[in-house]
Design a protein around this nucleic acid. Structure first.
Lengths: 141, 141
DNA sequence: TATAAATAATTTGTATACAAACTTTTTGTG
DNA sequence: CACAAAAAGTTTGTATACAAATTATTTATA
C-alpha cells in the first residue's frame, strides 16, 4: 500500500472519528458521550440486563463495560442491583433520570445520522450500511 | 433510530474495531501497534518531518502525537532532533531499526487489507473506499 | 458429591484520542 | 522595536478499549 489513505484501517478510523466527534459535540449538552449513549440505548430497549449481556450486544470487553457502568452510575443514570439468582451478577437498571434522556438523546442521534449521511445518495447509504454490517460481524478478517 | 445496529457511528466503530484488531494481532510479532504503524508509514515516505506535520497528515491531536512519539522513541524506532531553524520544533527521524521495518510491516498491512476486503466484490470495495474517504474528509458532519 | 472448569465482574496496566492549560519561541502589527 | 497573537510541543485529566490476572460463584464432570 503506497499511501496510508489507501489503508482501510485508516479510512475506517478516520470516518469513525468524524462521526464520533460530531455526535460527541451534540451530546455534550447532556454530559453524555457517544459510547455512553449506545449503552443507554440498549437499556431503553430492555432494562435489567446483565453486564455481560450488554458487553456482548455492544461487542465490548468486560473491563470496558465495568468502567462505562461506573461512570453512568456516578452520573446517576443507571444503577446496579444484585441478581437474586446468581450472586456473581449485577442487573443494570435505568434511573428516572436515565429514562428521561431517551427522547432527547435519540433525537440528537437521529440528527447526527441524517447529517453525516447527507453527503451521500440513498442507494449509496444502503450499500455502506450493508458493507459495514458485514465487515463488523465477519468472524475472521 | 430503533436499533443501535442502524446507527452509523456504531457501525463504523465496530467495522473499524474488527480491522484494527486483526491488524493489531498480526503486527504484534513486531511489537508495533496499528497506529504506530501508520505513523511509521508517513516517515517511510519522508523523514525529518515536524510533529505538527505528522499530526495534520494523520489527523491526530498534538497530545496524541507526543505520546506516540514517546513510545516509538522508547522502542528505538525514531528519534527527535531539534530543528535548526525553529527552536520550538523537533524533526522526527527514523532509526536504522525503524527503516528495517518498512518492508515486513507493509507486507502485513497489505495482507490485512486483502483479507478484510476479501468478503466484498471489487466494485463494492471501490464504493466503500470512496465513501469512507468522503466521510472522513468532510468539513462538517 | 468433591472438584475441575467455566462464568461474571473487577482490578491493573498499556495504548489511543482529545480538551484545556502551560511553556517556549516565532510571527505579525502598530 | 515592543507587544499581542499564533504556533509547536508538552503536561494533565478524562474516556474509551483490551489483555491479563484476580475473586467469587456457578456449572459440569468424574
Amino acid at each position: 500500500m503506497e499511501r496510508i489513505e489507501d489503508c482501510f484501517g485508516f479510512l475506517l478510523g478516520k470516518a469513525y472519528q468524524k462521526v464520533f466527534q460530531l455526535e460527541k459535540a451534540r451530546l455534550s449538552a447532556y454530559g453524555v458521550t457517544p459510547v455512553q449513549f449506545v449503552l443507554l440505548h440498549v437499556l431503553w430497549e430492555k432494562d435489567g440486563q446483565k453486564g455481560v449481556e450488554l458487553g456482548s450486544r455492544l461487542r465490548l470487553d468486560g473491563a470496558t463495560i465495568t468502567g462505562l457502568l461506573d461512570r453512568l452510575e456516578q452520573m446517576g443514570l443507571i444503577e446496579r442491583r444484585p441478581s437474586l439468582n446468581d450472586r456473581r451478577t449485577n442487573l443494570i437498571y435505568l434511573t428516572p433520570r436515565g429514562r428521561e434522556l431517551e427522547k432527547p438523546l435519540n433525537e440528537i442521534s437521529d440528527e447526527v445520522n441524517r447529517e453525516a449521511m447527507s453527503i451521500f445518495r440513498e442507494e449509496e447509504i444502503a450499500v455502506l450500511k450493508s458493507m459495514l454490517t458485514r465487515l463488523g460481524l465477519e468472524q475472521e478478517a
